[in-house]
Design a protein around this nucleic acid. Sequence first.
DNA 1: TGACAGATTGACT
DNA 2: GTCAATCTGTCAC
Length: 199
Amino acid sequence: MTDRLPRALYRKDAVTLARSLLGQRLVRVDGGRRVAGLIVETEAYLGLRDKAAHSYRGRTARNASMWKEGGHAYVYFVYGMHWCVNVVAAVEDEPVAVLVRALEPTEGIERMRERRPRARGDRDLCSGPGKLCQALGIDRALDGEDLVTSERLFIERARRRAYAGRHITVTARIGVAYAEEWAGRPLRFHLDSAHVSRR
DNA sequence: TGACAGATTGACT
DNA sequence: GTCAATCTGTCAC
């Protein structure tokens, strides 16, 4: 049975959402089969005032999904080769979002291995934003998807006993050194997991 | 119109 | 540790 996260949970500020997504299950359904993992690492991007956020310089064709209602997906392409998936937070026209940086694989692991043939082991399947999109088959086709109603991509309430009440580590975000005073802000959140992108 | 850098990864020294 | 891969948006010319 699915226990999908409701719209109300997404209509929060990005920091609250980034914390509440930890331990929940990101699910991709492709060809009738589920490929899923527990979210163990997230980053909050605070919109028009945040120099590290894609929405800082305003709307473009690429980042338009960030202006959608909370609970939609914002999928973008970086470095000419990788896809990254965000969960849009807050309300329509408030371009804030949460980047999903790492998952602990739980379902469809064979499918993940097929999609990531060069992965060194199962800890290398989803331990990074580009890796998890490759493992789950997330690309442009899912940009703007509504996670509350979609049959292809959604998030289920799945706080495992192992992660219930687990300590959340807070650090600066990864890869945003250019963002001046925003580079060091404590906006990255992760659980104590072997599947996080960096320690 | 062209240079350049980027919310990354994997190959290699 | 270094570095190239190569799409998108921004800013300078």
